[in-house]
């Protein structure tokens, strides 16, 4: 009996571990990451959510307290980022330009299951660690 329960337990663990999506490649899938962006002047940390909506990846990054930093979408076919909104204190044309390029690179990395990207020229590093889905609900 004990072995039987152990077996079920192990099976459930394998299933939930497998269910953790690292990139939402299929329609309706979603992925959640602990986001950490480090620059020479400081860093930004928070949570990033990605949702596949009819082949387009919609994303949002917000800090731990829930304040939204940016909303964006990524078209995997054209490999382009569209920024919908950026928090006022970061909403400058030159920041938007860097963010668009870096987020596109980061999305490509996440598609390959790589969780980090470094913009060497600007000395910005992005680390997006997947958050297990079952504990977020």
């Amino acid at each position: 009996m004990l072995r039987y329960f152990l077996c079920i337990n192990l099976l459930m663990y394998v299933i939930t571990a497998h269910a953790q999506v690292t990139f939402p490649s299929n329609e309706g899938e979603r992925a959640r990451y602990s986001a950490y962006i480090e620059m020479s002047r400081g860093y930004v940390s928070g949570v990033c959510i990605l949702v596949n909506d009819e082949g387009i990846i919609k994303g949002c990054i917000f800090n731990e307290f829930g304040i939204t930093a940016l909303d964006f979408s990524y078209d995997p076919r054209r490999q382009k980022i569209h920024l919908y909104s950026v928090i006022t204190m970061m909403d400058k044309w030159y920041i938007r330009r860097v963010l668009k390029k870096d987020l596109a690179q980061l999305m490509r990395c996440l598609q390959r299951s790589e969780t980090s990207y470094q913009n060497v020229r600007r000395n910005i590093s992005y680390l997006f660690t997947p958050i297990a889905d079952e504990v977020t609900q």
Binding site: R30, I49, K58, E64, I131
Partner: peptide
């Protein structure tokens, strides 16, 4: 925009007049 909710849990401590600890434990 995503029509999604994310839930976090934690603990909070406050002491008069200017001490506050806000600690998230799950999921980050």
């Amino acid at each position: 925009m995503l029509n999604d909710d994310i839930v976090a849990h934690g603990k909070m401590y406050y002491q008069q007049s200017s001490k506050l600890r806000w600690e998230y434990t799950i999921p980050y």
